[in-house]
Design a protein around this nucleic acid. Sequence first.
DNA 1: AGAACAATGTAAGAATTTCTTAAGAAATTT
DNA 2: AAATTTCTTAAGAAATTCTTACATTGTTCT
Lengths: 233, 233
Amino acid sequence: MEKQRVLVVDDDREIVNAIAINLRNEGYEVIKAYDGLQALDIISTQNIQLIILDVMMPKLDGLSATLKIREEKNIPIIILSAKSEDTDKILGLSMGADDYVTKPFNTMELMARVKSQLRRYLRLGDVNVTNKANLLQSGGLCFDLENHTLTVDGEPVRLTATETKIVELLMRFPGRIFPAEEIYQRVWEEPAYKVENTVMVHIRRIREKIEINPKEPKYLKVVWGIGYKIEKI
Amino acid sequence: MEKQRVLVVDDDREIVNAIAINLRNEGYEVIKAYDGLQALDIISTQNIQLIILDVMMPKLDGLSATLKIREEKNIPIIILSAKSEDTDKILGLSMGADDYVTKPFNTMELMARVKSQLRRYLRLGDVNVTNKANLLQSGGLCFDLENHTLTVDGEPVRLTATETKIVELLMRFPGRIFPAEEIYQRVWEEPAYKVENTVMVHIRRIREKIEINPKEPKYLKVVWGIGYKIEKI
DNA sequence: AGAACAATGTAAGAATTTCTTAAGAAATTT
DNA sequence: AAATTTCTTAAGAAATTCTTACATTGTTCT
């Protein structure tokens, strides 16, 4: 099995690094983020099993982030905060967090709580259930974020893994134009080097699956000299 | 839906009563116990959704009780203790508890933690309620959650323990794609390396039992690069 | 306890699907 | 019309899944 991935989010880089070192010692894979928006981006693109989240952060605070995360995925969240007032604890937990640790904290305790949450998360039967269907829709296209499946006018379309990632990326921001290079970077997660053509071939294959007439695409359009986009409808 | 049942265990009757009153205010049903042995007895005979457990108790202390409970049932445990030393927290959590609250505690915080644990624990239950006969059905497949048995077009199929767990997992969410890795985590409940093949072989054996033509599966399908699913019908 | 049987895990090669590359064709812009 | 960008196609490479056989473990019955 792959290592468990833990996302650590705090604007204080020293704290992030300290936690990361301990988590890695415990055998976890650690991904770092320094504000809430970064965190959300990582969560939606990567496979994360647990999140440690600071409350006080620039751009998007921890509690709001908790809400947004819960909309999308049902993974354990441990809130981290300097505030030790009870009201904050209650607020954090009722917003969907699974645990709450106040700074300064004992690192070993945090590790124990991480282990505890993951143990529960991995048990059979405690299956991910998102409360409501989470769908990205645009025109006849409908992408299910939970199952990573696409339907066109209600008809399910079989996409390959790579195709799915590309469609998901474009569907997240209908109307936004993604240069081929950016698509490559975000889908393959490695720097692009002479790969525009690869993206292009995949675009072509996606079109063959979702467009009535791939030569005159209705959904997946090119913007000359810039990139590709899903038509916003 | 029925009320949730919470078991409160502490040798200090005042504390038990105080917690009970608050829990009842929140709409829970409360069962009381005053030592660990009583608690174990209640757990094995009654349907309990969550336990609040004191560490210092006569006959059988909270931490030992936690271990025993875990052997038997997989319900959330919140440890309650006067000791606030970090070492105790770690011990409690690593023994299988899901949360740890130190006395004196804020009642509202305790309520919030109860709610938080139940929310996670019950996500699954909500799904069960919709399938009220306790049958999971999809096409010709029908899985009985009570007896853990599967029928194909009415014909009972003999599955082994592992096969049953896999089928149950997939049948709970027809159409949802489970990566082999996730199947392993949820069914075996342990981390492991290089186990995709193990899952795969089990999938193959299940197919031999439920599919007319295992080479062209009708029910248990693979989604390339992602995982396996039961066809949603 | 030992034998017979069932269940599970592991490994290796085969089969299948998907990805990448490259090169020429087509379309668009200047 | 020339230059640039995108499209199309096909073939080989790569990755993933399938299949089979066998070793190991566990269970049941005598």
